[in-house]
Amino acid sequence: MSWRDRVNELLYDGETVRETVDVGANRVYVTSHRVLAFPAATADDDAANFRHVDHPNVEGVTAGAESDRGALARAVAWSIAGVPFVVAGVVVEVGDWFSLPESVQSGGVAGTGGIVSLFADVFGALALLDEAVALAGAGFLAVAAWYGVRYWRSRDRVVTLGVAGDTDVRLRVDAGEEEGARRLRDAIRSA
């Protein structure tokens, strides 16, 4: 039997359970003195199995979403960097800027065969610059997409019990967080 089922052993002398509220897979006991929260265990969670908050330290109950905002910021930054590169690589045609005059290309100038060939190779390489810029932009956008997926996967719905002077108690829920938050808020008010 887990502690969430033996809450009477955690009560102070004279403390009584006023209401039990299940918030998703989490269980919260509202007592005459405190709020006892038993967050549902998750595989990647290092949170405590049990948190208690004295009634005067409860600042409120809210429902919302939590996520890795750093991943979102990185996704936006990489996108801002990538889009101009892709646009520049597609719109700007660098090969049009570098071309040899027709008279030089046709060998009209005596003794310039090797130099013309060298310049033709250099100009040919420079003509590929726009494709390289577009590929770099596509790489930036791929990194942005990776951070976007990371942000999306980090999103959790939570019911948060605000605690004055300490870390808030966050209860992860799958759905119906507004209803769970309302029931918990009502139970704390009536205690």
Results as ranks from 00 to 15, higher is better:
Y29P: 13
Y29F: 15
Y29G: 12
V30G: 00
V30H: 01
V30C: 03
V30M: 08
V30R: 01
V30F: 08
V30Q: 00
T31W: 05
T31C: 06
T31Y: 05
T31K: 06
T31D: 11
S32W: 07
S32N: 05
S32P: 07
S32F: 07
S32H: 03
R34I: 08
R34A: 12
R34L: 06
R34P: 07
V35E: 14
V35I: 12
V35A: 07
V35W: 07
L36F: 05
L36C: 04
L36P: 03
A37L: 01
A37P: 05
A37V: 01
F38N: 07
F38L: 09
F38I: 08
P39K: 03
A40P: 03
A40C: 04
A40Q: 11
A40V: 06
A40Y: 10
A40F: 08
A40D: 13
A40E: 13
A40G: 12
A41Y: 04
A41R: 13
T42W: 12
T42M: 10
T42L: 09
A43R: 12
A43M: 11
A43D: 15
A43H: 05
A43Q: 11
D44C: 01
D44F: 11
D44T: 05
D44M: 06
D45E: 14
D45A: 06
D45K: 00
D45S: 14
D45Y: 00
D46N: 12
D46I: 04
D46T: 09
D46C: 02
D46P: 02
A47D: 15
A47T: 13
A47H: 11
A48W: 02
A48I: 00
A48V: 00
A48K: 07
N49L: 11
N49H: 07
N49P: 06
N49G: 14
F50Q: 12
F50L: 15
F50N: 02
F50T: 04
F50I: 11
F50M: 11
F50S: 06
R51N: 15
R51V: 01
R51Y: 15
H52L: 12
H52S: 15
H52M: 13
H52N: 14
V53C: 10
V53H: 02
V53M: 09
V53K: 01
V53S: 04
V53W: 03
V53E: 13
D54W: 08
H55P: 04
H55W: 10
P56L: 09
N57H: 09
N57S: 13
N57I: 00
N57P: 01
N57Q: 10
N57A: 14
N57W: 02
V58T: 10
V58D: 08
E59R: 02
E59N: 01
E59G: 15
E59W: 00
G60P: 08
G60F: 04
V61P: 07
V61Q: 04
V61I: 10
V61R: 01
V61D: 03
V61C: 08
T62I: 09
T62M: 04
A63I: 02
A63H: 10
A63S: 14
A63P: 01
G64S: 06
G64I: 03
G64L: 05
G64N: 11
